[in-house]
Design a protein around this nucleic acid. Structure first.
Lengths: 340, 340
DNA sequence: TTTAGCACTGTGAAAGATTAAGTGCTAAAG
DNA sequence: CTTTAGCACTTAATCTTTCACAGTGCTAAA
């Protein structure tokens, strides 16, 4: 791969990203100051190497997945984020009262809006949330709400109907015991310690201890399983991309973007915390016809992922720089708030 | 409209609902024991009356909106809910531990699943929620969580960063004052009373009362605005309906179903509490190409709406009977739980 | 190594041909 | 007065053909 060949591939990928139409040799000769025949010769080589493909024998060239991969790893230049894009994102971070996790959500909404791709935010209160306290609020003699709060400020609540033989006071007493024994415990270890340490204690003090125990057990496991929030923005936005221009593909994609399993799969994984990862079509198991660009984040007791779903012909440079920008802003806010 | 004409219209509507293809005269003569010419004569009358339409001069007939309206009001027979449909819904209500609002959500998921229409649940803690208590949980010297709870068990929480000149204890003290003064106040009146009654009191007792006041004001207005949950099921399901079989219409509909304003508009309105309402195409301002069937519900401090969005060629009888069934089950559970 | 020239190919749009489904109308029959 | 058979007519849909276009690969000369 000499320099001209690299430039040619770069030009082909970027032209295709812009136009969504196969790139012919004629269109490129002005840029390379040579005849279309020369371009054709080089294109034939790039095709042999597997970087570009033809739809049919006499069509222009389209980047292959391998071509996109080579592009994002060797050819893509860090695209300067445009002024108007930056302005929109800045406005969000300018509002200091906005919680960071809400700021992220808003950012991804905007990114979906300005790019016509679908975006995802998945946040999960992370393992370094510790139990701060559990409160029991009695609504009546037979109904209580358990409110679980962690030291990072994550709160969940669950309502319970008490069976006739359980007294509200016994539930409250149990909550006090739990508060004394388990404060500071990492939230995902609470269930275990509840079983091994708290249960024996309340067995001695509470009459119907099994039933009461179950209430708290449910409340805590609910906390662990519920305390993730997922936002998908612009599911319909991506349909504006010209590749999804037939009914069958549109329906297929619509179904996929509705499928919570797919969305969760997309937004989970053990990517490096500091790296933006790119998954192009069949390279990953997500979907053959889309590219997914994602980045992990970690703020104030919340682990999360932000991701953008678009066509393989995605504007890689733009998305990467947008995600980087959001990430930077996030870091600077974290420092400013002096947390984390 | 003599009996035969009614039957003919009924047959046309139901055939079209089943097949999604314009109904011709030949297909109907066996059912009416006469020749196709006779049917054609009758059809011409129905067309003059505006109940059916032709796509073009020599096509079969399709019900008009007026025709559907006449059908649902005069011709539709209460369709018996089928055994397997009933079974699926029964399983949900069989689980007594499931909260009623979760049961509704699950039901509408199933209805979307079995019918291939889109379904909506919108729940809102209603005006008859009264303030039970507001708790302040201190995470640190400069961070607190305000937890607002109503007598119906609805809980919301909001985190605040305290400015340097505010002491946590002042916030807690204020919460105690609020609890003393405002317990039992309808939740949507709390903001007003906070302003007129509580503010003067804390003015005398709290140094930076303006800032502290704002925290609670924000928490309560957040409660009122946030405490609604909306679930849209099977946005992509409806695309399986044959009428949405071209790219432009598919995109249009996908955008609409993503649009939160549309969804909220669909699930709000002053329908009679006890009636199932049907909005057919252009009759309403929702969308010219869909029918919306909806029903209000009211359980345990939560007002809500369940709705189904489908093509105008919707299986009216089936949806109505499904919604009626859910409503019945709901009522019987309410009685059993002895609430509301 | 580059380029001009040329034969060749698949696509897509336009134009016709054909078929199928269904209508309205007329005139006769019940 | 209602029903029906018969027939001419209409339209959509499908298929085929044609044609221009954009682009390719290859050859031979520069």
């Amino acid at each position: 791969m000499d320099e001209r060949r690299n430039n040619l591939l770069k030009e082909i990928v970027e032209t295709y990203i812009k136009t969504a139409k196969p790139v012919g040799s004629k269109a490129l000769c002005s840029k390379f100051d040579c005849s279309s025949a020369t371009i054709r010769n080089e294109m034939a080589v790039l095709e042999d190497l597997g970087y570009i493909e033809k739809n049919h024998i006499s069509s222009g060239r389209v980047p292959s997945e391998k071509g996109y991969r080579y592009y994002v790893e060797h050819l893509m230049e860090a695209e300067k984020i445009t002024g108007s894009d930056m302005l929109k994102l800045q406005q969000i971070f300018a509002n200091n009262e906005l919680e960071l996790s809400d700021a992220i959500t808003k950012c991804m909404e905007i990114i979906s809006d300005i790019t016509n791709y679908t975006s995802i935010v998945l946040g999960k209160s992370s393992a370094d949330n510790n139990l701060l306290q559990v409160n029991i609020i009695a609504l009546s003699d037979y109904q209580v709400v358990a409110v679980v709060c962690t030291d990072k400020g994550n709160v969940e609540n669950k309502m319970f109907n008490l069976p006739g033989n359980i007294n509200v006071n016994e539930v409250i007493k149990t909550s006090e015991i739990i508060n004394k024994m388990l404060v500071g415990t990492p939230i995902n270890e609470v269930s275990d310690r509840l079983e091994t340490e708290v249960k024996p204690v309340i067995k001695r003090q509470i009459r119907q201890y099994e039933t009461v125990y179950n209430i708290f057990y449910d409340a805590f496991s609910d906390f662990v399983s519920n305390n993730s929030n997922i936002h998908v923005n612009g599911r319909a936005k991506i349909f504006e991309q010209p590749e999804y221009n037939d009914v069958a593909e549109l329906k297929r994609l619509a179904n996929k973007l509705e499928d919570i399993d797919f969305i969760e799969k997309v937004s989970q994984g053990d990517d490096d915390e500091n790296e933006i990862k790119i998954y192009i079509g069949d390279e990953s198991e997500f979907d053959p016809n889309v590219t997914i660009i994602r980045k992990k984040y970690h703020i104030n007791g919340e682990d999360g992922t932000i991701a953008v779903i678009g066509p393989k012909r995605m504007d890689y440079g733009r998305i990467v720089s947008l995600l980087e920008y959001v990430d930077e802003k996030l870091d600077s806010r974290k420092e400013k708030d002096g947390k984390d």
